[in-house]
């Protein structure tokens, strides 16, 4: 269970159908700041690897002259990972493949806006 001031934000996302984990992660170190995870979801792995992916996308996009990256999404055969960052934190949503991506994207961006 979430134990930090970020708990309400995490809870607002985890309640969506198909979401199996929500994590707030340091972008540079890939360590979990807070998380709400269903049983069996490897939070440390999602945190480290998604933060790394997000960081890579952000740096690559900047190097390619595309400016700051706001939203990131990885789709796979059996699941999706959504991420958005602010102030060196990355909000990560782990979900099943069949979800309403549009709705989750909007909810995620709203949650990120509310980060301090």
């Amino acid at each position: 269970m979430a134990t930090t001031p970020f708990a309400p934000l995490l809870q607002s996302i985890i309640r969506h159908r198909g979401v199996t984990g929500v994590l707030l992660v340091g972008e540079d170190d890939g360590l979990v700041v807070d998380s709400v995870l269903q049983v069996g979801v490897n939070g440390a792995a999602f945190a480290a690897l998604t933060a790394s992916l997000y960081r890579k996308a952000r740096r690559s996009a900047e190097a390619a002259g595309l400016g700051r990256t706001g939203y990131f999404e990885l789709d796979a055969v059996d699941g999706r990972v959504l991420a958005a960052g602010k102030n060196e934190l990355v909000f990560i949503v782990v979900a099943e493949a069949r979800i309403n991506v549009g709705l989750l994207r909007v909810e995620l961006l709203k949650a990120v806006e509310r980060l301090p």
Binding site: A61, T69, F72, E73, D75, A76
Partner: peptide, 11 residues
């Protein structure tokens, strides 16, 4: 999750 099929990001 099996193999990845697509990556999307917005800048």
């Amino acid at each position: 999750f099996g193999a990845w099929t697509q990556i999307v990001f917005e800048t």
